[in-house]
């Protein structure tokens, strides 16, 4: 084919001219643009019917390009266009005072506070369970099956039960949500820590034995430091799930505030833009949390003499 033959030298030339850009930025940018492009295409396709029907009901005859343009500006679209979500985020994050109930920052803070409490509880529980399992041989057989089966129960099924049970003994507010969050996030920490606490090689353990070190001394001076890389891997997963746990915990309570409440309200009233904005808020929050854990990890690694690549 002649067109193909003509295109190849052009392609090569373009590649060569792109050389100076080669790095991480370009591929990342291309992928982002591709996703946004696909999204717009999907928004166009999914909103077309509703938009066309609306014009028809109003008795207005519109051309295809006019309908296409209108699909990008629906009040309750099937799939909001990216710019609609950006505007909604700007409106609810920047233009609204953070004390207002319409502010996404306010709702994010409500969810973040129960996330952080849940993450703290889950981390403590995860580490304590791992230490117990490693030190008491019978617990490995008797406790671990419960730990694993706890994660096979769908959280959506058990969250209302936890809320109701805790509510009946007078525990309400932030704590029940945190407990659901902790329930989800202790698991990767326990699994990682059990592996990490057992990671020292036989020589490193024999060394402690030759000093007739106590179990506690071996734990503090060998097992715990050796387990930190595993702990951080677990923490990164756990912090993201603890946010999910906090959001799920907000759904069955009919919570008045929080990202979960925002999602629920959005779905009641068909406010798809609000739902998507809340989802993006949650995603941004999760990324910030994971990045924070990563930062702490790097600081700890540096103080522990890890090789700097």
């Amino acid at each position: 084919m002649t067109t193909e033959a003509a295109a190849i030298p052009g392609l090569k030339a373009r590649r060569a001219s792109f050389r100076p850009w080669e790095g991480n930025t370009l591929p990342v940018l291309v992928i982002v643009l591709a996703i946004v492009g696909l999204w717009y295409a999907a928004a166009l396709a999914m909103n077309w019917r509703g938009t066309a029907d609306a014009f028809e009901r109003a008795g207005e005859a519109r051309s295809a390009p006019e309908i296409a343009l209108a699909t990008m500006g629906q009040e309750r679209p099937m799939l909001p266009a990216p710019h609609q979500i950006v505007f909604e985020l700007k409106k609810t994050v920047i233009d609204t005072p953070t004390t207002s109930r319409r502010s996404l920052v306010y709702h994010a803070w409500v969810t973040l506070s129960s996330t952080l409490v849940g993450f703290g509880l889950g981390t403590a529980l995860g580490i304590v369970l791992a230490v117990l399992v490693v030190h008491v041989k019978t617990l490995e057989r008797s406790l671990m099956p419960w730990v694993i089966s706890s994660q096979t129960i769908p959280i959506l099924a058990i969250a209302p039960i936890i809320i109701v049970v805790l509510g009946s003994i007078g525990v309400t507010g932030l704590l029940p949500k945190s407990i659901i969050s902790a329930y989800l996030c202790f698991f990767p920490i326990t699994i990682g820590m059990v592996k990490g606490l057992n990671s020292p090689d036989p020589m490193q353990r024999d060394l402690m034995r030759t000093y007739s070190a106590s179990q506690a001394q071996t734990l503090w001076r060998l097992r715990l430091p050796a387990s930190l890389p595993y702990l951080f891997a677990g923490l990164k997963v756990a912090v993201a799930i603890s946010l999910v746990g906090a959001i799920v915990g907000e759904l069955p309570t009919g919570a008045q505030a929080g990202l979960g409440a925002r999602l629920l309200a959005g779905s009641y009233y068909g406010q798809t833009i609000q739902i998507w904005a809340a989802l993006f808020g949650a995603a941004i929050l999760a990324s910030l949390l994971v990045a924070t854990v990563g930062l702490v990890e790097r600081l700890v690694n540096r103080s522990m003499g890890a090789r700097t690549a």
Binding site: M203, D206, M304, G305
Partner: peptide, 11 residues
């Protein structure tokens, strides 16, 4: 006791 490998704690 001195082992086959140094068995120093890397941290």
């Amino acid at each position: 006791f001195i082992f086959q490998a140094p068995a120093l704690y890397p941290w």
